[in-house]
Amino acid sequence: MNEQSVPSGIDPKLLEILVCPLTKQALRYDREHQELVSAAAGLAFPIRDGIPIMLVDEARRLDDAASTTRPEGAAQ
């Protein structure tokens, strides 16, 4: 009930129901960077305002950590 009082966090129930959209394996929650990390796919899925973005084309590739560009210039 009071989970919403942590604005930058993510609903722990949500973490339990999500897997990597490519490998279907478990995700690791990176609290500091607000990302869901799929080690197997080499992708980090961003969490914005507590909402995970599970789109592969919006994920950060783990092998070029410096890149912030989006593959197709999607909104925002």
């Binding site: 609903d11 129901i17 990597c20 959209p21 490519l22 909402i51 995970p52 973005i53 599970m54 592969v56």
Partner: peptide, 18 residues
């Protein structure tokens, strides 16, 4: 409505049988 998530229908990020 529990959650609303950005996700692609072709690559669902849910386990089997969810």
């Amino acid at each position: 409505v529990e959650d609303l998530i950005e996700m692609d229908a072709q690559d669902l990020a849910f386990p089997d049988g969810s």
